[in-house]
Design a protein around this nucleic acid. Structure first.
Length: 423
RNA sequence: GGAGGGAUGGCCGAGCGGUUUAAGGCGGUGGUCUUGAAAACCAUUGAGGGGGAGACCCCUCCGGGGGUUCGAAUCCCUCUCCCUCCGCCA
């Protein structure tokens, strides 16, 4: 959420940001709602001031045993008027806040202006794309031939967009999680956390999934609970409504969690394989920092996600999401795309974003500087990495002509010494 | 599932209709003292919103929501969460 006072004073900046994001939103409506809200507020506050003064006078007289019935006479009516106006003020507040919640973050000046994903510039290309003297297979074929990935039984147990991993594949998922978490905790200074996979709606509002993206979530038919779409939600909300110590910043958490997404609106997209599942595993990194350091923190975070791919010797490229493609809450996002020989394409495997104070404002996450008032932190997060897609990338990049697949050296210790998979 | 107890500022904790503009303590910050530090003492120390060029002023906030009242941290209803005991349970 943006600062209401910022929006009020910089309405044209907001309009430009919306245009750059290819979004239609009538900011004139916001101005009307905001002015109405302040007018009602001014009126009700004047009356409350009157009432408070009169009540204090009543108290004073009663204490000294004097009669106060003349004062009491009009007060009942005044209170009734306040009650009515308070209701109007509440409504006006709700309306303008609802509008404010629908305004996306302002893209950072370094976020390139563009209409769609076609305009995302490539920042760097890393690693060598492997060449094959045979036609490389796609991962689902490899995975099924090697007896590790079973989509049919998953469909029986649950439905489409689920997978059962068996034997080496189940172990590889566990190995990848351990490998990534070890890297981030031992070498990148992150604190590992294990959080609930179910969160309440306050948490989802805090990170910006609600109110706008309810259709992407699995909502439980129990209380106000949702399955998490990413560990970003529980981990960022660890510090919701807290004031952090300046000395602790910047700080980072890493967490492994499954993620649950309804994938509403993506019917027919990536229907085969592990790329787009209702449930997938992900290792996430979340950072909290001071405003002035958040862009260097974004570079750091991105490099830490890239390090996973470097260690696994998987070729990838980094792109900057342009204004037309960057997420609702993000001011700047780098996507890391891994090379998939079977698809002959780069596919997203990590997304690293700086939300500046957009989430912190919603979630009430502050820090107290040595001198001065508490101010909002900046929050960042990035996948480090999506585990299923990492497995996809290993299968496709490490495949051989005979259908066997080598295990990346860095992963061998985590696979109990296993160096290759054979049909 | 049953029966009780609780939720107050960064933290602990008093308050149980109008001298609460939330006592007191801890912590934080500034100062006095000191070569420096500690101790002691003094002062200061929440958030959100609105108005104003500014000095400042006003409104709201004692877990959430609703009610009673001229007036609610305080009384009533309701929800959430935490604790204790019983039952069930990985």
């Amino acid at each position: 959420m943006l600062d209401v006072r910022f929006v009020r004073k910089n309405i044209d900046t907001v309009r430009q940001a919306l245009a750059n994001r290819q979004m239609q939103l009538d900011m004139g409506e916001f101005v009307r709602l905001d002015e109405h809200r302040r007018a009602v507020l001014a009126e009700v506050e004047t009356l409350k001031n009157e009432r408070n003064a009169a009540s204090a006078e009543v108290a004073k007289r009663k204490r000294s045993g004097q009669d106060a019935s003349d004062l009491l006479e009009g007060l009942s009516a005044l209170s009734e008027r306040i009650k009515g106006l308070d209701e109007q003020a509440r409504k006006a507040d709700e309306d303008s806040e609802a509008f404010l919640y629908s305004i996306p973050n302002i893209p950072h000046s370094s976020t390139p202006v563009g209409k769609s994903e076609a305009d995302n510039p490539v920042v760097r290309v890393v690693g060598e794309v492997p060449s094959f003297d045979f036609t490389p297979k796609e991962h689902w074929e490899l995975g099924q031939n090697l007896g590790g990935i079973d989509f049919d039984r998953a469909a029986k147990i649950t439905g489409t967009r689920f997978a059962v991993l068996k034997g080496w594949a189940a172990r590889m998922e566990r190995a990848l999680v351990a490998f990534m978490i070890d890297l981030h905790t031992r070498e990148h200074g992150y604190t590992e956390v294990a959080t609930p996979y179910i969160v309440n709606s306050d948490s989802l509002r805090g990170t910006g999934q609600l109110p706008k993206f309810e259709q992407d979530l699995f909502r439980l038919d129990f209380k106000d609970y949702y399955l998490i779409p990413t560990a970003e939600v529980p981990v960022t909300n660890l510090h919701r409504d807290e004031t952090l110590d300046e000395a602790d910043l910047p700080m980072g958490y890493t967490a492994y969690t499954p993620c649950f997404r309804s994938e509403a609106g993506s019917y027919g997209k990536d229907t085969k394989g592990l790329i787009r599942q209702h449930q997938f595993d992900k290792v996430e990194m979340v950072r909290f920092c001071k405003p002035e350091e958040s862009y260097e923190q974004l570079e750091l975070l991105t490099s830490q996600a890239e390090e996973v791919l470097k260690r696994l010797k998987l070729p990838y490229r980094v792109i900057t999401l342009c204004t037309g493609d960057v997420g609702f809450s993000s001011a700047k996002t780098y996507d890391i795309e891994v090379w998939l020989p079977g698809q002959n394409a780069y596919r997203e495997i990590s997304s690293c974003s700086n939300f500046e104070d957009f989430q912190a404002r919603r979630a009430g996450i502050r820090f107290k500087p040595k001198c001065g008032k508490a101010q909002l932190v900046h929050t960042l997060n990035g996948s480090g990495l999506a585990v299923g897609r990492t497995m996809v990338a290993i299968l496709e990049n490490y495949q051989r002509a005979d259908g066997s697949v080598a295990i990346p050296k860095a992963l061998v210790p985590y696979m109990g010494g296993l160096t290759e998979l054979r049909p």
